[in-house]
Amino acid sequence: MANTALKTFSLTNDIIEVSPEDEIYRYNKDSQKKLDKEAPWSKDPKYFKKCRISAVALIKMVIHARSGVPYEIMGLMQGKVVGDAMVVMDSFALPVQGTETRVNAANEANEYMVQYIQGSEKVSRLENAVGWYHSHPGYGCWLSGIDVSTQMNNQKYTDPFVAVVIDPNRTISAGKVDIGAFRTYPENYKPEGGSSSEYQSIPLSKIEDFGVHADQYYPLEVEIFKSSLDTELLGLLWNKYWVNTLSQSPLISNREYAVSQLNDLQLKLAKAQSTVASTRPVLPILKEDADATSKVLKDAKKKEDSQLTKSVRDSTKIAIEAQHGLISQVLKDVIFSIRPGADPTASLSRVDEVIETTTALS
């Protein structure tokens, strides 16, 4: 199952090259103990700013997430703290039976987790458990109410701890890993100015859960790094699976997700349409009620524009993903279907045309 998942996955996120000495892989036990004793994250709710993840650990998480579709999966991450960054060095899957909407660790998973960490200590692996990851197949990277509760408990008893969410369906469609890292605020803590995050295309069935808990956590900047040895390992993996990657299309392997996106967009447009005010003659308004009525109309107009704007963004995102899938197929056909005796310059000109079209659409 892991091999099948890897065949449909290509790591195209920006990767930060580490120094030749691979300093990030050095582990200073004394400094880690000192940092744990000081625990600066307990004084500042937003102490951690970044989550740096090893490329190999990321591949393991994405393969695990893809193998569980359409169900959620769950795993644990090992690493350390470096300054204001949570550094994930490795990850491992947990024997958790998830559903299409939630995943939670039971006693069996907790026992497996403890045994795995104890086994790591026996073979002189110094990294601690620094977080957990799970998947949201097709509905984006954020924390639900259950996820917030789980992360709050983890930060209460095993801090420092980070929650990572991966969307395997959007990863395939977008051509890069759709991932998010989050930390929750302490109980009864109110962030200044509320939460400010980039717009996400959330399915209609999940919007309420997404909005209710949005102020209880904040996102960390995610960076991917690799060592010189990881570079060799990734090269070997690419040499084995590049044919499968080129021969497959996200439009086919991920068509169920594409259909669900279109169905969700139709529901959102229908909901937006029902809220748009009909064009009826305006009744006369008393002068003293003019200001109050004007404010109500402005608020209603803003709500209408918001719903319609979000629907337009969703439709644009779906169209771009479909266009990229079609363009990749055209490029493959142009490059690999040159007939014997055909003029290669004609094929190159077709490639240039496709590239120009891609640039214009983006």
Rank of each mutant, 00 (worst) to 15 (best):
N3I: 15
T4A: 14
T4V: 06
L6E: 15
T12C: 10
D14R: 13
V18Y: 03
V18N: 05
P20E: 08
P20N: 10
E21V: 04
K34M: 08
S42F: 05
K43C: 00
K46V: 13
K49I: 07
C51P: 06
R52F: 05
A57V: 06
I63P: 01
P70S: 04
I73P: 01
I73D: 13
V81Q: 08
G83I: 09
A85K: 04
M86N: 04
V88C: 05
D90F: 01
S91N: 04
Q97M: 08
G98S: 01
E100D: 07
T101M: 07
N107M: 11
N110W: 08
E111Y: 00
Y116W: 15
S120M: 15
S120N: 14
S124G: 06
E127P: 08
N128T: 08
V130K: 07
G138Q: 00
G138K: 06
Y139N: 11
S144D: 07
S144L: 03
D147A: 09
V148S: 04
Q155A: 03
T158D: 13
D159R: 15
A163K: 08
I166R: 13
N169F: 00
S173F: 00
A181I: 01
Y185P: 01
N188H: 13
K190C: 02
E192K: 13
S197T: 11
E198Y: 10
Q200H: 01
S201M: 02
S205T: 06
K206G: 07
D209R: 03
D209F: 03
G211D: 09
Y217W: 10
V222H: 07
I224P: 11
K226Q: 15
L236N: 14
W242Y: 15
N244Y: 03
S247K: 14
S249Q: 01
P250R: 11
L251R: 12
L251Y: 02
I252P: 01
L262V: 10
L262Y: 00
L262F: 00
P281C: 09
P281Y: 00
K287C: 06
D289R: 12
D289H: 08
V296L: 14
K302R: 12
E304V: 13
T309G: 14
S311T: 08
R313W: 07
E321L: 06
I327V: 11
Q329K: 13
L331P: 06
K332A: 09
S337G: 12
S337I: 09
V351I: 15
V351W: 01
V351H: 04
E353Y: 01
T359I: 12
